[in-house]
Amino acid sequence: MKKILALVLALVMVSCLFVTAHADELLKIGYVQVGHESDWRMANTQNYYDVFTKEAGFELELIDCDNDHARQLQEVRNFITKDFDYIVIDPIQEAGWDDVLKEIQDAGIPCIIADRAVAASSDLYTTAVGTNMTAEGETAGLWLEEYLAGKAAKILVIEGSTGSSAAIGRAEGFNKVAANHPEWEILASQDGDFTQNGGQAVMEDFIKRFPEFDVVVCHNDNEAYGAMDAMDAAGIKYGVDGKIIISFDATKEGLTRTLAGKILCNVECNPIQAVIVMNVINALKAGEQVEKFTLVPDEGFCAPGIESAIVTTMTDEVLAARKY
């Protein structure tokens, strides 16, 4: 019995050696993903799996942190212990990263902040790749400016989860444009948690508190669907000949509704980021100097029949090309 056990153990040890030896040829990339809370996030995860393949010379370990900040910190420390070649962080929240970023730096591992932002000194990480949420908010604001062409408007805002960089950035960008327009009035702003149910509940309340409004700005597509449900129930018309709905994310389902003329303007937040991250990693590997921030380009879309210099008018082709 003991002999068999010893044999099995020996085999296991040998195979472990073999596995490590094999893995050495590939670049070990650790990615701490935020979670799997939306279609957008799942498209982002899939994109990483598609790009960082063994064939391309990478061994990707993608950890889904399920929106748990503490878990994310712990997983990053795990990566450090296991001595990964590169660590990619998509931070769940902006604050609270200084210590762990310092630990990565001390371990001499290059660290890339992807998608969202951290509230830490840029000396603490190698480089950042991401979309510019503030620019997205600004695009939405500028489109509204163009569409209203000087008309007064009463605006309701359904925000994303309080404290997330998407909610902060999009609000900041939109408010920047709104500040130039005394004829715009932001009636109220409430957190809809980035969910359809949240959007419904917030909009049900808005309709009762503010019988008169013109524009609803939703911080993501799911909130916009919820707002539409609530307006349907109250018999309020929206779209080309009704209330103006502005949304962000531009997922396939969201763009379907833009094409149908329901969501008048939908500003994209591009989840297809893995290629850009890979290019950055390859550049770092080759010893090249990389920029501190690489922007993932975003686009905006508006409903058919609206001419715009700021965003693209939706067509069937755009929708067909959308994968997520």
């Binding site: 309080t162 109220a188 409430q190 957190d191 809809g192 917030v202 049900e204 309340d205 009762k208 508190r209």
Partner: peptide
């Protein structure tokens, strides 16, 4: 209570 919070305009956070 939840609906009241909305009606009072209390931020969800």
């Amino acid at each position: 209570i939840t609906t009241t919070m909305y009606a009072l305009g209390v931020a969800k956070a």
